[in-house]
């Protein structure tokens, strides 16, 4: 087993193979506290698979994922979440039949057992936290709206809010601005810059303009391996990256 580190997230020698196809191949990746790290790469590079591996949706073939020096590869999904890892899915994954308030309430990190959920009371403390989160994600006026009626961008924000209310140490966002308008993208960039303080954020994104606006560091994945890493400028000028991803 590898030794402990100061990193929030330390991925070492991570490999996963599906019937011999290595979607992620001996990956090493480190994430600091307060860091907003963006992973880019062509389709099929293994970006989403890496997130799946971290949050426990996919089990790794070999290697280690340490979050605050806790090994995640052996834990079940809900244990990983309780340890402080939050993940947003590519398509907005919210409860369409429930209101915004109920969506946030369900995500509120108390009453997570059967008995706890039966006894759960919507106290003023809970409501305060919900209101605070809702105003952060710009949905404070839509608390009683059924989530299915929100616009696509608002749904994305709601899902981010559902993660924020749990106050995770590591926040993982899979294409958070996909399908958003220009204005919504700007607002989302602002939101991400705000929430990345005090935690680590890992983002998968294709929109280079958006990446430029938010990223502290960028990693380019290609065929399950890291092609390049560094700040935006370095990556953009890297000939290998231009070759496989950005184009000439």
């Amino acid at each position: 087993m590898n030794s402990n580190t100061d990193f929030t997230l330390a991925i070492e020698d991570l490999t996963v193979s599906f019937d011999g196809f290595k979607a992620v191949d001996s990956l090493n990746f480190y994430l600091d506290q307060n860091e907003l790290h963006v992973v880019i790469g062509p389709n099929g590079a293994g970006k989403t698979t890496v997130l799946d591996l971290i949050c426990g949706k996919t089990k790794s073939t070999s290697g280690s994922i340490k979050f605050l020096n806790e090994e995640l590869t052996k834990m079940s999904e809900h244990e990983i979440v309780r340890a402080g890892v939050g993940r947003k899915f590519q398509t907005p994954s919210i409860y369409e039949n429930l209101t915004v308030l109920e969506n946030l309430e369900i995500s509120y990190p108390y009453g997570r057992t059967v008995a706890g959920s039966l006894m759960f009371k919507r106290s003023s403390k809970v409501l305060e936290k919900i209101n605070q989160t809702a105003s952060e994600i710009m949905l404070q006026d839509d608390l009683d709206t059924e989530a299915g009626l929100l616009s696509h961008g608002q749904k994305q924000w709601l899902e981010i809010g559902m993660l924020l209310i749990q106050d995770p140490q590591l926040l993982m966002l899979d294409e958070p601005v996909a399908g958003m308008s220009v204005k919504e993208r700007e607002q989302t960039a602002e939101l991400l810059n705000k929430i990345s303080k005090g935690r680590s954020v890992l983002v998968i994104e294709h929109d280079m303009e958006f990446v430029e606006r938010i990223a502290h560091k960028v990693t380019v994945l290609h065929q399950g391996k890291i092609l390049a890493a560094g700040n935006m400028e370095e990556v953009q000028n890297d000939p290998k990256v231009i070759e496989v991803y950005l184009g000439h």
Binding site: H78, V81, G86, F89, S93, Y95, E102, T113, M162, Q166
Partner: peptide, 19 residues
């Protein structure tokens, strides 16, 4: 509410920390 949530988006509930 959780019951409905599980019916509609089981993965989201799981990745919100529920068993």
């Amino acid at each position: 509410s959780l019951l409905l949530a599980i019916r509609d988006k089981e993965d989201r509930v799981r990745f919100s920390g529920y068993d």
